[in-house]
């Protein structure tokens, strides 16, 4: 019995403290070091923030370079497939151009009408400062089962602040959650930690919550509210951060939201520097 206990303690101690050969550090010392680094990063943000920012910038760039081969093959295959489908795509696009040409007149009329109505209501056009946006390239899009985020190649140097909304083709994709000097991390709408105040077609207010899957869900809807398919979802702007009316997605038959932008297919995004209430960020 005592021999077995001795065996246990020897094996246990050896596993924790063993060094020599290729092992220059014992497991125990590295465990302590990891715990210290963890708590410094979580609680000692004043001391560690500049270091973490520098480390992030360096690692993100190395990640971008290291991922180049993995990015090349899917892009090459997409190009080849695109080339093979050129004729078919040309015909489809011609039909689309004809359709949009006929719609253009209607749009022009509606824009004029909208402006006139706004003048009557003495309201300001909420997107008047659209020029103040930053175009950013997605550096890293590592798919994690737990966190849905991307890293972009613009940071505080370009004026990006934590909390700023990120869009693609004017569709909302997420918000900035971490800023470094040369890069930022964007939390996508489908992440479990994402919460966005939204408004529905009929004017109902709700919170769009990421579910960790590709489709976020609507929470805090009015009582007895029934979700139908194809209801458009827009940012309500009630938080003072997101531009009111930014389109996000539409409801599907499972009462979830199909985002207008696929979060897994982002290569360039825009960051809106015109947040309404910078104090809340």
């Amino acid at each position: 019995m005592s021999v077995s206990r001795d065996d246990f303690s020897i094996a246990f101690r050896s596993a924790l403290l063993q060094r020599g050969g290729a092992q220059k550090f014992s497991v125990l010392s590295l465990i302590f070091l990891a715990i210290i680094i963890f708590f410094l990063d979580v609680y000692g943000s004043k001391f560690t923030k500049p270091f973490r920012g520098f480390l992030n910038d360096v690692v993100y760039r190395v990640t971008f370079l290291a991922s180049t081969p993995t990015r090349f093959f899917p892009e090459a295959s997409r190009d080849i497939i695109g080339y093979l489908n050129l004729k078919e795509e040309n015909e489809r696009l011609k039909a689309l151009v004809e359709k949009y040409e006929s719609l253009e007149l209607n749009v022009e009329f509606l824009v004029d009408e909208n402006k006139n109505l706004q003048k009557i209501l003495e309201t300001e056009y909420f997107n008047k400062n659209l020029s103040n946006i930053v175009l950013a390239k997605v550096l890293v899009d590592k798919n994690s089962p737990f966190l849905k985020s991307i890293i972009i190649n613009k940071g505080t140097r370009a004026g990006i602040l934590k909390g700023m909304p990120v869009t693609k083709n004017n569709y909302l994709v997420g918000r900035v959650v971490e800023t470094n000097y040369l890069s930022s991390r964007v939390l996508l709408l489908n992440d479990l930690n994402s919460r966005i105040p939204v408004t529905l077609d009929e004017g109902a207010q709700a919170i769009l919550s990421g579910s960790g899957t590709s489709n976020p869900v609507l929470e805090y809807l009015p009582e007895d509210y029934e979700i139908f398919e194809d209801i458009n979802i827009f940012a309500s702007g009630k938080d003072g951060i997101f531009t009111p009316g930014t389109p996000i997605g539409k409801t599907n038959d499972k009462s979830q939201v199909d985002l207008f932008v696929d979060p897994n297919q982002l290569s360039f995004v825009t960051v809106n520097l015109n947040v309404q209430n910078i104090g809340d960020l």
Partner: peptide, 8 residues
């Protein structure tokens, strides 16, 4: 760093 978790 890459995944966005706290260091360590």
């Amino acid at each position: 760093v890459v995944m966005g978790f706290p260091l360590g």
